[in-house]
């Protein structure tokens, strides 16, 4: 009898199941341990992909914990496509419910940031505007300004100090995380994404601008310390803005 790929896959992903029937070594004996080569290849290759994709989560929980967690994750969420660059999109939601990691409530947001960095790395290239073209907009028209953002730009909001946590645990330097909420703006000036702090009070403004709101509508959401010239300077100097239009 030929084992179908349904049975083969079920046995691959669950080591408590016996190897499928009908598999032999070269001498006609049951395949036994030989099937474990495939089991091991699948588990190890997916674990390595998660290690490569979530280096800061791995640093935060330690190698042994990460490997055990990856073993649970990969069985609950095998890749949905052969594009391993996207593998692990379910990690933040998985971490929300993963009891053994419950003592580290910031892990899901750190995972969101790591996913954003990976998405940014593979995002489409886009030519930034010349900052002078924005400077030429008459002040009276600025209220109706809508900015177009490069596809590699991603905003990650959090109620935890995710930027500090990311910096300390990714070798990017910085002191111990401060106990405050932080928003990470992921930029990709050329090919290397990096998360930056968009400045005090800027997160809700940026979120609105990225959603396509006008400058006037976005500024309604600004915090008290918000500094518009500083934010525009940050965006323009990092090639974030690829175009704009003006609403009448």
């Amino acid at each position: 009898m030929m084992p179908g790929q349904t049975e083969f896959t079920a046995a691959l992903m669950d080591a408590s199941r016996p190897a499928p029937q009908g598999l032999r070594d070269g001498r006609g004996r049951q395949a036994g341990k030989r099937f474990d080569v495939y089991r091991n290849n699948v588990a190890v290759s997916l674990t390595e992909a998660l290690e490569a994709g979530f280096p800061v989560i791995r640093k935060l929980v330690g190698d042994e914990f990460f490997r055990a967690m990856a073993g649970v994750f990969l069985r609950a969420h095998p890749p949905a496509s052969p594009l391993m660059m996207h593998y692990g999109a379910e990690m933040p939601a998985f971490l929300e419910d993963f009891g053994p990691a419950g003592g580290l409530p910031y892990l899901p947001d750190v995972a969101r940031l790591e996913l954003a960095l990976r998405r940014s790395y593979h995002a489409a290239d886009a030519a930034p505007i010349d900052p002078a073209s924005l400077a030429a907009v008459p002040p009276v028209a600025m209220a109706g300004l809508r900015l177009h953002f490069a596809p590699a730009v991603i905003l990650v909001t959090s109620s935890f100090p995710i930027l500090d946590i990311w910096r300390v645990n990714s070798g990017a330097g910085g002191g111990a995380p401060r106990p405050k909420e932080q928003t990470a703006l992921v930029l990709r000036p050329e090919f290397d994404p990096r998360p930056v702090d968009p400045g005090p009070g800027a997160a809700p403004v940026l979120a609105a601008l990225i959603e396509g709101a006008t400058l006037a509508a976005s500024l309604d959401r600004a915090g008290p310390e918000f500094d518009l010239p500083a934010l525009l300077g940050l965006l323009l100097s990092n090639g974030v803005i690829t175009g704009f239009d003006l609403e009448d």
């Binding site: 896959t9 691959l12 495939y38 699948v42 997916l46 095998p78 890749p79 949905a80 052969p82 391993m84």
Partner: peptide
């Protein structure tokens, strides 16, 4: 080889008869 079953990608080159 095969590597996808039921829309799950298994990231290995699996054998067939």
């Amino acid at each position: 080889a095969w590597s996808t079953h039921d829309s799950h990608f298994l990231n290995d080159l699996l054998p067939l008869p």
